[in-house]
């Protein structure tokens, strides 16, 4: 691949998804796009760049961005946020007016494991939520991932990552070597295509936002913009969960770390904000 082709493809990915591909990610283009190139009968990445420079290449560009979106996921990934959520949900349930659902956003939900882990956590609280309805919104850039998440069907390998076997038995139905999330859990989640670069206000307000291991792919100005948007739609007593390697330091003063917790952030009180 020529540097010119790489820069063109990386530019297209940046504009469409916010994901920054540095020059050392050339290998990622090769491995992630192989299947798509074969399917489309395109000889290589230079040929792909050529095709995408031509008019009417919209569908192909969308397909490329989907193929490059990182989809690594497991149930109860990193554990800690879900333990925190377990303590937080009863407090939120007690603080909300009667009839108002608790709304939770799984941003960049990939194949849905995070959203279903949230649903399992909420169902597990049972009476502690005093019958409070929990509404989960899973969004992702990739239509293919949303379709997978909506079906809630996972391989034997996937259901063994992070998911205690008691929960597997309780919340999944077996179909041969595949496992489908039970209908009552699937009914708790609605799935929607959404690009984190777009204005999220259309999604409504949330009590809790999971936005983990996504920002690492963005450049600093994009991170700042996304974090500010998350802060604007999370409830004053709600939280935003970020990935373990992510921070708000130097990016926004609208979210502050919850004292004593890792990866848990809350909206800054106006008085605490500087500038």
């Amino acid at each position: 691949m020529t540097p010119d082709s790489f820069n063109f493809l990386a530019g297209l990915v940046k504009v469409r998804s916010g994901i920054v591909l540095t020059a050392d990610k050339g290998y990622m283009l090769e491995t992630r796009l192989g299947t798509m190139l074969r399917r489309e009968g395109i000889a290589g990445l230079d040929a792909l760049a050529l095709r995408l420079r031509a008019p009417r290449s919209e569908a192909l560009a969308a397909e490329m961005v989907e193929a490059l979106t990182t989809n690594e996921s497991s149930f109860f990934r990193d554990g800690k946020p879900f333990e925190h959520l377990k303590k937080l949900l009863p407090k939120l349930a007690a603080a909300r007016p009667p009839g108002q659902a608790i709304r939770i956003w799984s941003a960049a939900c990939s194949s849905g494991q995070e959203a279903y882990s949230i649903a399992i956590t909420a169902v597990g609280l049972g009476a502690a939520l005093a019958g409070r309805r929990v509404e989960i919104v899973g969004t992702d850039l990739s239509q293919e991932m949303l379709q997978r998440a909506r079906e809630g069907v996972y391989t034997q390998f996937e259901v063994q990552r992070g998911l205690p076997v008691q929960m597997l038995v309780k919340h999944f139905r077996q179909e041969g070597t595949r496992w489908q999330v039970a209908p009552e859990l699937r009914a708790m989640v609605c799935w929607q295509a959404f690009n984190l670069l777009d204005d999220p206000r259309g999604l409504g307000r949330f009590d809790v936002v999971f936005c983990r291991n996504v920002l690492i792919y963005f450049d600093a100005p994009t991170k700042s913009r996304v974090l500010a948007a998350l802060a604007s739609l999370v409830a004053a007593d709600g939280v935003v969960y970020l990935g373990g390697a992510e921070t708000v330091l130097g990016l926004t003063d609208r979210l502050v770390p919850t004292p004593g917790e890792r990866g848990v952030y809350e909206a800054a009180r106006p008085a605490a904000r500087t500038g």
Binding site: Q160, V165, T177
Partner: peptide, 23 residues
């Protein structure tokens, strides 16, 4: 053995966890 009935049998016999091969 990856049948859900087998998993339940093992759990009720006192197993704490269950791995379905391959692992």
């Amino acid at each position: 053995e990856a049948e859900i009935a087998r998993i339940i049998e093992a759990l009720s016999a006192g197993a704490q966890e269950y791995v379905m091969k391959p692992f």
